[in-house]
Amino acid sequence: MTVVEVMFALLGVIAVGSAILVVTTQHLVHAALWLVVTLGSVAGCYLLLSAEFVAWVQVLIYIGAVVVLLLFGLMLTRAPIGQSDDLDSPLGQRIAAAVTAASAGAVLVASVVTSFRGERIDLSDDRVAGSTGDVGAAVFRSWVLPFEVLSLLLLAALIGAIVLSRRDVSAGPAGARMGVVDEFGEIAEADGVVR
């Protein structure tokens, strides 16, 4: 085994171990912090696979943004800091989940092992195809249309998140426009809309 393989195996063990801790720990905040460990070791795996830019994007967006967003979500739903015992489903459902996950994992591992046994990734030559320049050229030459569509999707998600989390949307013009039915059975329009 080369040094790269040993390091990849170590990072993989760390990733899977901390992922198991993410789904089993009883501390809500610890789950988010173990998720950081998992995402960080997956970023290390990207680096070892010579996908340099993807690794740093993973660190920036996943660890930097997504985990912070999840921590904000935990904070805003008043998550308890200490241990909480209502995070898991009942035992029967957990056993069913474990059986499902184990069988899905077994089928996946068996199928990829039978398909790709003996295949090797060639990382030996100096031509690294994952640097920022390479990925930037690929994104803005071959994949520029999906890139633009993605910006539209991000805009839609941004607007959707704002609309969902505003408190005064239902009391605003949209709510007033529906009007109220007065005692004569007619729809009386609210003042703000008439003006």
Binding site: V22, A104, V112, E119
Partner: peptide, 20 residues
């Protein structure tokens, strides 16, 4: 590096995600 290493790691992470 064997191709199986990252691919099997991905399968295991996916299974853990299903459990979660």
């Amino acid at each position: 590096m064997p191709l199986l290493m990252p691919v099997v790691l991905a399968c295991l992470l996916f299974a853990v995600g299903i459990f979660g």
